[in-house]
Nucleic acid binder design. Structure first.
Lengths: 160, 160
DNA sequence: CGGTATCTTATGGGATATCATGGTATTTCA
DNA sequence: TGAAATACCATGATATCCCATAAGATACCG
């Protein structure tokens, strides 16, 4: 599906987590959440990365619909329901656009003091900024290679 | 079918069962029950897991309709009628949103002291928190594999 | 183009409401 | 009438609301 740029989560932002555990959602992300219904954020601890997968109503409804489409008695569906659906945390935004992440979410993403919002288009992730930096270097290499292969679609990579 | 996020049972919550057998329904679940009619909870002991399958009016009506659609004289329908329909327990919420589970339901789900509500979207389950933890690790692996196969839809599983 | 005003944004702290839970009173039904 | 179930009220912890402020960005205007 194609979405307008104003409905996409784009860019990265680092905000502070205060003593009460409050974390301001980037204004740019708030605007796309407003366009979706509700004004809540849905967070799921990733099973394979040290971060939270997040999105608005549209994101979670799409995800839930894809799980609901599976065979109700399959092992796969059961697993997804209990490790995804049952782990979704709905956090509401206060008037200032802040959220409060429950302790177990903060622990699972190693959050402490600061949090990084990374826009992924239809969804976004919340990371410990240091953890994010660690994977960034590795992924830059992969991206560079991917770009080169796009520019030079020859089987054997010709030097630029 | 697609449902709005506010009508879905999402997330997990652990509440205490007091000496009188009362168990508070999570506020988040109460809100979706209110949206459905009645404000009662329908519980069915699972035939294959140590838990209770639960939902509101919408859940039970959908389930009953799918059974009613079966051939009236089939073995399958007869079985479902007696292992599902006949075992449904309707429990009402008090003013504080608490339910009281009859003894045979508590026993069938090994409930004692604490109960875990696990949202599954259109329905939810009630578990003994320890029993739920037991299946979590295995199901996490299945979920991670399911995610990877979505990202890398190759027939032969590529090494990670 | 410079400088000021205004709005937005992120952050801080105090007041208020909600929620889970415990206890007491009242009803219901055998 | 007596026991169990249900309705009603109390409370502490936590989360939500509301107002305040400072810094940055943007707009406006001389």
């Amino acid at each position: 599906m194609r979405r307008g740029a104003e409905t996409l989560f784009l860019g990265s932002f680092v905000n502070k987590i205060d003593v009460k555990g409050r974390l301001a959602t980037p204004a740019r992300f708030r605007r796309v959440l407003d366009l979706e219904r509700g004004g809540a954020i849905y967070c799921i601890p990733s099973t394979d990365e040290k971060c939270l997968d997040c999105g608005g109503a549209f994101y979670i409804e799409t995800l839930m619909a894809s799980i609901a489409a599976l065979d109700p008695f399959s092992v796969k569906r059961r697993s997804l329901e209990r490790t995804v659906t049952a782990r979704v945390v709905e956090v509401s935004l206060d008037k200032e656009g802040r959220i409060v992440l429950p302790p177990h979410l903060r622990e699972s993403a190693l959050l402490d003091g600061k949090a990084l919002f990374a826009g992924l288009g239809a969804s976004f992730q919340i990371w410990n900024p240091d953890e994010f930096k660690k994977i960034a270097a590795e992924e830059e290499k992969i991206t560079t290679e991917a770009k080169l292969s796009l520019r030079n679609p020859t089987p054997a990579g010709a030097a630029p």
